[in-house]
């Protein structure tokens, strides 16, 4: 394994990837063997901390996305702010279960900006991290429309009372494309309420979204929501 990991450190796109295939085969064959997998995870984290090329680190992140545990979180979290490493770190983190990942992503939000911040917000949304709802609520009003849109969409995925309150407030202030994202997220909150049995709460949102000043697709979706919520 050590030899293969050394080859990964020097791997770059366009070169032979036999070492990469061999390593992924070894990992696959070790399924169910916690001790072996732990050894591989440790070795792979060593590659992330080394001066391996971007291609090699990306390969490792793909592997960790499948076998990574909370043990991988510190190393991956340290890559979240890097322009070349943020997306690959999220590729692994987003798939690794556990609160340590959510904590790391949440902590990275205020420390990052632009596209990197957007990616981290997207990951929190995909993971449905309820603890991030308050922080994301504050970002829906960001002057950076890309961040505001990502925060609104993430709140739609997360749902719950904090998310719906923030989106209710944001819908009146948002304009243009951002407004569509906010309204879509608000609709999703209502749909989640129906699924969770809170039909009264959902109907109140659908009725707000049925108003004449709402875009036609939103009104259409809200109408469908009312029909679904009032079904016996």
């Amino acid at each position: 394994m050590e030899q293969l990991l050394e080859k990964v450190k020097t791997y770059d796109w366009g070169q032979s990837r036999t070492a990469l295939t061999e390593l992924s085969e070894l990992v696959k064959k070790s399924h169910g063997n916690a001790a072996e997998l732990s050894k591989y995870e440790k070795g792979m984290l060593g590659v992330l901390k080394s001066d391996a090329k971007r291609a090699g680190k990306q390969f490792i992140c793909r592997q960790l996305s499948i076998i990574g545990t909370e043990r991988s979180v510190p190393a991956l979290a340290s890559m979240l702010a890097g322009e070349e490493t943020s997306d690959m770190a999220r590729y692994a983190l987003e798939r690794i279960p556990g609160e340590a990942v959510d904590d790391a992503l949440r902590k990275a939000v205020p420390k990052t900006k632009g596209k990197i911040k957007v990616g981290i917000i997207n990951s929190l949304g995909q993971r449905g991290d309820k603890k991030s709802a308050k922080a994301l609520s504050g970002l829906v009003g960001s002057s950076d429309k890309m961040i505001a849109g990502a925060a609104a969409a993430a709140l739609g995925h997360i749902g719950g009372s904090d998310a719906s309150k923030a989106l209710a407030k944001a819908k009146d202030a948002a304009a243009g494309k951002l407004r569509n994202i906010v309204l879509d997220a608000y609709l999703k909150c209502a749909d989640r309420m129906v699924a969770g049995g809170n039909k009264i709460g959902a109907l109140s949102i659908y009725k707000e979204l049925q108003k004449k000043d709402m875009p036609t697709p939103i009104r259409t979706a809200a109408l469908r929501g009312i029909v679904n919520a009032t079904k016996r």
């Binding site: 399924h31 996305s65 499948i66 076998i67 943020s86 997306d87 999220r90 590729y91 692994a92 983190l93 987003e94 798939r95 279960p97 596209k115 990197i116 957007v118 990616g119 997207n122 990951s123 949304g125 995909q126 890309m146 990502a150 969409a153």
Partner: peptide
């Protein structure tokens, strides 16, 4: 099967979602 469930989605490169 937690490992297989990880394959059900793919983390997207920013800013896409």
């Amino acid at each position: 099967n937690e490992r297989a469930n990880r394959y059900l989605s793919r983390p997207m490169r920013s800013p896409w979602s």
